[in-house]
Lab assay of single mutants.
Amino acid sequence: QIFVKTLTGKTITLEVEPSDTIENVKAKIQDKEGIPPDQQRLIFAGKQLEDGRTLSDYNIQKESTLHLVL
């Protein structure tokens, strides 16, 4: 699982696999929060994550925290 922290300070927990794409993660966030993926920007280690890449591409491991910017 990974954590996604929103600007409001809320933390969302997501069940993911390293092979999941960023697009996939955004879809999971939409399921939980109702935020359309095209409004979501995910930041990890100061980098904006691209939809077509996977979590493992960015070396995002379990218990990692991503930041969600709208």
Score class of each variant (00 low, 15 high):
residue 1 Q to P: 08
residue 1 Q to Y: 15
residue 3 F to G: 02
residue 4 V to C: 04
residue 4 V to N: 01
residue 5 K to I: 15
residue 5 K to S: 09
residue 8 T to W: 11
residue 8 T to I: 08
residue 8 T to N: 13
residue 8 T to R: 09
residue 9 G to R: 02
residue 9 G to C: 07
residue 9 G to W: 04
residue 11 T to G: 03
residue 12 I to F: 11
residue 12 I to T: 03
residue 13 T to N: 06
residue 13 T to L: 11
residue 15 E to V: 14
residue 16 V to H: 05
residue 16 V to L: 07
residue 17 E to V: 12
residue 18 P to S: 11
residue 18 P to F: 15
residue 19 S to I: 07
residue 19 S to N: 12
residue 20 D to T: 10
residue 20 D to Y: 07
residue 20 D to I: 05
residue 20 D to C: 08
residue 21 T to E: 03
residue 22 I to Q: 02
residue 22 I to R: 00
residue 22 I to S: 02
residue 23 E to S: 15
residue 23 E to N: 08
residue 25 V to D: 00
residue 25 V to I: 12
residue 27 A to S: 12
residue 28 K to V: 04
residue 28 K to H: 05
residue 28 K to D: 02
residue 28 K to A: 07
residue 28 K to T: 03
residue 29 I to S: 01
residue 29 I to Q: 00
residue 29 I to N: 00
residue 29 I to F: 03
residue 30 Q to P: 02
residue 30 Q to G: 07
residue 30 Q to E: 10
residue 33 E to N: 08
residue 33 E to C: 12
residue 33 E to H: 07
residue 34 G to E: 04
residue 35 I to S: 04
residue 36 P to M: 07
residue 36 P to D: 08
residue 36 P to S: 08
residue 37 P to D: 04
residue 37 P to A: 14
residue 37 P to T: 14
residue 37 P to V: 15
residue 38 D to V: 09
residue 38 D to F: 10
residue 38 D to W: 13
residue 39 Q to D: 08
residue 39 Q to L: 11
residue 39 Q to H: 09
residue 41 R to A: 09
residue 44 F to A: 03
residue 45 A to E: 15
residue 46 G to F: 05
residue 46 G to Q: 05
residue 46 G to L: 04
residue 46 G to C: 09
residue 47 K to V: 13
residue 48 Q to S: 11
residue 48 Q to I: 14
residue 50 E to Q: 10
residue 50 E to H: 08
residue 50 E to W: 05
residue 51 D to Y: 04
residue 51 D to R: 04
residue 51 D to W: 03
residue 51 D to A: 07
residue 52 G to S: 12
residue 52 G to N: 12
residue 52 G to C: 10
residue 54 T to H: 06
residue 54 T to M: 10
residue 54 T to G: 03
residue 55 L to F: 03
residue 59 N to T: 04
residue 59 N to H: 10
residue 61 Q to K: 12
residue 61 Q to S: 10
residue 62 K to Q: 10
residue 62 K to L: 10
residue 62 K to E: 09
residue 63 E to F: 15
residue 64 S to N: 10
residue 66 L to D: 01
residue 67 H to T: 13
residue 68 L to P: 00
residue 68 L to E: 01
residue 68 L to V: 05
residue 69 V to C: 13
residue 69 V to W: 10
residue 70 L to D: 09
